Amino acid sequence: MNKWSLRGLIFSALFAGVMIALSSMKVDLPFSTVPITLQTLAVMLAGSILGARYGALAVLIVLGLTAAGFPVLAGRGGISVLVGPTAGFIWSWPFAAALIGWFAQRMTQNRYTFTKLLGVNVVFGSLLVYPAGVAWLAHSVPSLDTLYKALAAGMLPFLPGDFLKAALCASVAAGVWKVYPIERIVGSRKASAWSSSDSSAVKGQ
């Protein structure tokens, strides 16, 4: 296992700042306590560009600052945010960043890079956060007493935006990789069946 690097730690801190900046852009919805924000885009970018460890660390830095009372999540801070109605989504973010990063570290760059990144970010950056997020939301808000009400308040309206965020992240990450490959942050690229099959496909073209 590669050691933690100063470069990776610095990038984690920088991406924590990116997440704080993006979280300030929000739109409150009249029918839900869950606002539309760009926080999940920051989570996707952290995992895709920094890899598993440093991407998750960037998110954990923000959560730590939130717990300490700093208003860094959409202008809010304190323990109440981390146990409030949206806590299920928030606590899913480090796992989402780690899983996105895990797969990103095992990808090779070819003509399918965007598609692979898009798929990984849709699955782990969007769909992964909803089971815990919606369940905790329904637990915290008594009026959400049916599955449909919980999904309508915490999931269904956000899916189109999540897909757009995943597409934007995939596009940005694919571009970044061309000038600053992910292995420069995480160390040597880890081998996988996915990477091997991609390499074989490129050689056969």
Score class of each variant (00 low, 15 high):
Tyr148Pro: 01
Leu6Lys: 15
Ala193Gln: 13
Ile36Arg: 00
Leu117Gly: 14
Tyr112Trp: 09
Ala68Asp: 09
Ala193Val: 14
Gly101Met: 11
Thr113Cys: 07
Val62Phe: 10
Gly175Ala: 00
Leu151Pro: 12
Met1Gly: 15
Leu22Trp: 10
Asp145Val: 06
Thr37Phe: 04
Phe114Ile: 08
Lys165Thr: 04
Ala46Asn: 11
Leu41Gln: 03
Ala13His: 08
Ser196Met: 11
Ile10Asn: 13
Ile185Phe: 11
Val120Pro: 10
Gly75Ser: 13
Pro181Tyr: 08
Trp91Ala: 13
Pro71Lys: 14
Leu164Gln: 05
Met44Trp: 01
Lys116Gly: 14
Ile36Pro: 02
Phe11Pro: 00
Thr33Ile: 02
Tyr112Ala: 15
Ala52Tyr: 03
Gly64Met: 11
Val172Asp: 00
Ala201Arg: 12
Thr33Pro: 02
Ser197Asn: 15
Trp91Met: 08
Thr37Cys: 04
Ser5Gln: 12
Ser48Met: 10
Cys169Trp: 00
Phe163Pro: 01
Leu127Glu: 10
Leu9Ser: 14
Pro157Val: 07
Ala167Arg: 02
Ala167Pro: 09
Cys169Ser: 12
Ala173Glu: 09
Arg184Tyr: 01
Ala74Arg: 09
Gly154Asn: 10
Pro35Gly: 05
Leu50Trp: 10
Ile61Pro: 09
Gly69Asp: 12
Ala58Val: 12
Asn121Leu: 02
Gln105Ala: 13
Pro35Ala: 06
Ile20Ala: 09
Ala74Met: 07
Ser12Asn: 05
Leu29Met: 14
Pro94Ile: 03
Met44Ala: 06
Trp93Asn: 09
Tyr148Trp: 13
Val129Cys: 06
Ala13Arg: 14
Ala150Leu: 08
Arg189Asp: 01
Thr108His: 15
His139Arg: 08
Thr40Asp: 00
Ala52Pro: 02
Ile20Val: 15
Gly175Asn: 00
Val129Asp: 00
Val202Ala: 04
Ser80Cys: 06
Gly187Asp: 11
Asn110Phe: 06
Ala42Tyr: 05
Val186Leu: 02
Gly17Ala: 09
Pro181Ala: 13
Val83Pro: 01
Ser197Glu: 13
Ser126Asn: 15
Ala173His: 14
Gln109Tyr: 08
Asn110Asp: 15
Val43Gln: 04
Asn121Thr: 05
Leu9Val: 15
Ser24Gln: 15
Thr146Asp: 05
Ser24Ile: 05
Leu137Ser: 07
Phe124Lys: 15
Gly77Gln: 11
Leu50Ser: 07
Ala56Val: 04
Pro142Gly: 11
Phe158Asn: 04
Cys169Gly: 00
Ala52Gln: 05
Pro181Phe: 14
Thr115Arg: 07
Ala104His: 10
Gly161Pro: 10
Ser192Arg: 10
Met155Trp: 00
Ile49Lys: 00
Tyr112Glu: 09
